[in-house]
Design a protein around this nucleic acid. Structure first.
Lengths: 122, 122
DNA sequence: TTCGTCTTACGACTAACGTCGTATCATCGT
DNA sequence: ACGATGATACGACGTTAGTCGTAAGACGAA
């Protein structure tokens, strides 16, 4: 009688030591996914449906899986919702300073000019 | 009578301020291209054919173009050869610390375990 | 000029990716 | 028990990306 998240697919997360740089870079090389990660840096944890990206739910699920399997985010279940968080510490252990450099780079470049892309900047 | 590189296609390089983070991440998210960049950090400038990657020449040209148009490398012509160099300073102006974080991440992760991929490590 | 070398351009093929619609499943509230 | 909600799985589609072979261009040497 497990009452919460009993027989769901089980959310695969790679171990910190197994996170692959290529996977992380590929995961972050997509505008939608980078927006997700940027959002997550501000809000530590968020429900799936609450991200400021305008794609279909199934597409969003796909992006979450890419990020999750790359080791960038961690997802946990709570009732009918799935909460998503950045694996900040794990990433910093595996690739010190990398995620921060990328997020800072985004902010820095967008402060200098606004011509990058304005997906979900509101 | 221009004697060097007279009517070649003219090598398009984006201005430093136009370098796009998404493009850089996408460019670096490929094993072959990351190997090129890693090689370039050690050797400041190299001829095209001298990179330790085993792909067809035309494929190599393709990767050089991706890196060049992303603003990661700069290429200049000298006779029949084309020399390639990293745009270290430009990238550091545009995205401070980013390239170094990525290259350091690669070295760091590969020092911990050798299971990433060994393309051209000899 | 002629040849050989270095590099690219072009076209083609295949695999991977981003996108979506629909169906399904688990959970919570009534 | 029933319906509504949040999220996923699956299958499909079009586009992009990585790969190669072949042809062609520019340069240097003989």
């Amino acid at each position: 009688m497990p009452r919460t998240h009993s027989r769901r697919p089980a959310l695969v997360h790679p171990d910190t030591g197994d996170i692959d740089l290529q996977d992380v870079l590929r995961a972050l090389a997509d505008p939608t996914r980078l927006t997700i990660v940027r959002t997550l840096r501000t809000d530590p944890e968020r429900a799936c449906g609450t991200f400021p990206v305008d794609v279909a739910p199934s597409t969003l699920t796909h992006h979450f899986r890419v990020l999750r399997e790359a080791g960038v985010i961690r997802q946990r279940e709570d009732g009918t919702r799935r909460w998503t968080a950045l694996r900040l510490e794990d990433l910093d252990i595996r690739f010190p300073g990398l995620l921060d450099a990328i997020l800072t780079a985004y902010a820095y470049a967008n402060a200098a000019d606004g011509t990058t892309h304005e997906q979900a900047d509101d």
